[in-house]
Nucleic acid binder design. Structure first.
Lengths: 138, 138
DNA sequence: TTCATATACTACATTATTGTGGTATTTGAT
DNA sequence: ATCAAATACCACAATAATGTAGTATATGAA
């Protein structure tokens, strides 16, 4: 019951870049700092650039930069960029036809919790995350 | 953000058995009723019997019976029987060292939601589920 | 005792996620 | 123009979850 590893990686990278903002980071530096598998992180950064969350600068002295202010990048956007966000709206028992109108037996209990989670993702920006980065060891 | 398919299967089977309690169901009947892959469901039922949630009766005219009253079987027990329940207690950002004392940046917001979910699983019995089985098409 | 029909077990197949390797392409500094 | 150093791309490897096949074993009814 958590975000995918890919989402977690993405949040950590973006957070690191936000922590010391407006600087160009080559992927190699991010790999070393965050200890995420080299090729996987590079691919992830390309994905994030295609979704307008980072900007990629090719060629020598290139790298990646945040494309928005940390206050305007929300966890939800990052998760939606790297995995299928629909998953987070699904029925906890897996009934595709489950809805407010046609609820599964757990719907009334689960839906509010699910909504809280989605609101958490939607309302939490990378700026919020970076306010207390202690555990992230930047 | 939902239970694993295996957990969902398990809940549906147990719910079906609770809906018409104290009857012996051969796996073949459960497979047909619930449209879950034959061998996968049989293996799942064996797992559930090893965890004392159902009782298996071998040989001709055998099958599976609930081993407790539906009021005493909780979603949490079923999930814990078929997947690693620790997963549900984990940090949303994946930090293994994240805790109340050493929180990740999302911990304060996430922990209460996570606790609500766990309470939902712990406090909801199969009897509760079966009260409104409409969507389950029993 | 035999037999039909049930569960138990073992190994393999498929799929999705995560991780790796090699090469092509881009581009600023020289 | 060339080169170093960066991203982009493509194909494959490893792992975990889910699904399938075949066989062994159990047991009540006849």
């Amino acid at each position: 019951m958590n975000l995918s590893k890919t989402s977690q990686y993405a949040i950590r990278v973006i957070s690191f870049m936000a922590y010391d903002n407006r600087q160009i980071y080559p992927a190699s530096v991010l790999v070393k700092k965050l200890k995420i598998s080299d090729k996987y992180l590079k691919r992830l950064l390309t994905t994030l650039s295609k979704h307008g969350i980072v900007r990629s600068i090719q060629g020598r002295y290139g790298g990646f930069v945040l494309d928005k202010k940390p206050e305007n990048i929300f966890i939800y956007d990052i998760v939606a960029a790297v995995e299928n966000i629909e998953k987070y709206y699904g029925c906890i028992l897996g009934f595709s036809e489950c809805s407010d109108e046609n609820p599964c037996p757990l719907h009334e209990k689960w839906a509010p919790i699910r909504d809280e989670l989605i609101n958490l993702l939607k309302n939490t920006s990378i700026a919020d995350v970076v306010k207390n980065p202690k555990i992230m060891k930047f």
